[in-house]
Amino acid sequence: MSELKETLKAQIIEQLNLENLTVADIKDDQPLFGDELGLDSIDALEFIVLLEQNYGLKISNPSEGKDIFHSVNTLAAFIEKNKN
């Protein structure tokens, strides 16, 4: 699980072009949306792309997105729960 979280952080940095951040800068339970990282609705769309391209996962119910994308912890849990 911790390896997955580290991989996710690296993928988030690359996908969202967060070039000023390193993997160590993103805490597992840190809210991804809000003031700290400054992510917005377009970034949420990028998360959907990231999940499909890297893990083959689709968000079937868009209203679930807010909870799934809350933090690296919730993203990793979603991937673990739904992976084949």
Binding site: Q15, I42, L45, E46, I48, V49, E52, Q53
Partner: peptide, 13 residues
């Protein structure tokens, strides 16, 4: 080049 159904929105926008 993409093989997935979804495309990155930023470049499109």
């Amino acid at each position: 080049t993409s093989t997935s159904e979804t495309l990155s929105p930023t470049a499109f926008i």
